[in-house]
Nucleic acid binder design. Structure first.
Lengths: 205, 205
DNA sequence: CCACTCAGTAAACAGCTGTTTGCTGAAGTT
DNA sequence: AACTTCAGCAAACAGCTGTTTACTGAGTGG
């Protein structure tokens, strides 16, 4: 199925990835709307004109970064959804997954949190589309749970939105605080999930 | 107490406010980290060097904008807190207040949502401080409610965090969608608040 | 009235920006 | 072996950036 691509295309993809990696690094201390094309090529070590062989814009680069960053998040979310057991266990596991994602891909997480409401419209929209897709997946998984009998699909979607937003907020809070804050942030996140779980349990009263 | 300030200081404050207003307008389509000092002075119609009479940096301008934007929000929040009545009424009033704030000060709201996780550290921190202050106020008000007897102050703070985050997210969602989405966004926001209210009611079980 | 303060000015500085151009040479094709 | 493709290059373009300088002239207070 996967045809080994030629030396040429392989090199091109390597450069493309290098551009994206350098951009992600530069975005740790600024936002996409101020990221210069020359700045990126300089960091990679290629000529400015080479940029145009891969992207039309820094906004275009940003959209590509969204796919990459949310691709890795997607696996995490799928894992969090499949999880089974008592709600307290599930909460612990979900929060641990978030913490792990922040630890292993901090730049990706920062990028998403920052550009979600950022100044570059196409990137903002790309993130919005993907997060909505995540929420839909979560809603579907929630619907499969026996605890959700009697729920309307709109209410399931509403609940899923709470979970997704909470995930992003918690991840962002972990990035903002230093390591000494981690424990209390995670404790708060778990308490908030517990609160939502309680609300969920009594939704149909 | 309030000495009428001279013509001179009045003019200075007027220019300063003009700089802030123009900046806020320019920030509708970009983020602070890409906002140029010349860009702002050009929009106001003053010389670039005049900028330094008021701010050292665009970051400095940003911090000033935080105070202004969250000042107006502060009144809204105070109003939302004081509200009384059945929880369903309170939810409707709180959501209506958010919608009103977004309608009357869209640029301020957008600025806060955008720069909350933005690329300019001092501004990010200023927003963080103010939102934490809001959350503390909310927590205090919640503590005064008879429904909160038996709650630890940490749990009250946790709940207040949910409310504040939810407010910002809802406001941002209203900005992102067009007017035709408003009704469904508000409906979802109310449902989410209902969910939290239920969780709150059963917290001590 | 006169000395002083100081918000805003105009001009110049080096250094940066995105984009276009024609080129080079390795990789791919026949 | 001859021919085509095309990723990356060096150079040049106009236009922008933040910052400093010495200045002007209206507002202020004794």
């Amino acid at each position: 199925m996967s045809h080994t691509l030629g030396i040429r295309q392989a090199q091109k993809q390597k450069t493309r990835q290098a551009l994206m990696d350098s951009a992600l690094q530069l975005l740790e201390h600024q936002s996409l709307s101020s990221l210069g094309l020359r700045e990126v090529t300089r960091a990679v070590g290629v000529a400015p004109a080479a940029f145009y062989r891969h992207f039309t814009d820094t906004a275009d680069l940003g959209v590509a970064l969204v796919e990459q960053a949310l691709g890795s998040l997607h696996d995490t979310i799928r894992a969090a959804i499949v999880t089974t057991g008592a709600s307290e266990e599930r909460i612990h596991r979900a929060v641990a997954l978030i913490a792990a994602q922040v630890r292993t891909h901090p730049a990706h997480v920062r990028f998403i949190a920052r550009e979600r409401h950022g100044g570059v419209a196409p990137v903002r929209e790309a993130i919005g589309v993907q997060l909505r897709r995540f929420a839909d997946e979560v809603a579907e998984a929630l619907g499969a749970d026996p605890q959700s009998t009697g729920w309307t699909s709109a209410d399931l979607r509403m609940l899923a939105g709470v979970y997704v937003d909470h995930m992003v907020m918690t991840a962002s809070a972990l990035l903002e605080g230093d390591e000494s804050d981690e424990e209390s942030i995670l404790t708060t996140a778990r308490a908030q999930l517990r609160l939502v779980t309680l609300g969920r349990r009594h939704w149909l009263d």
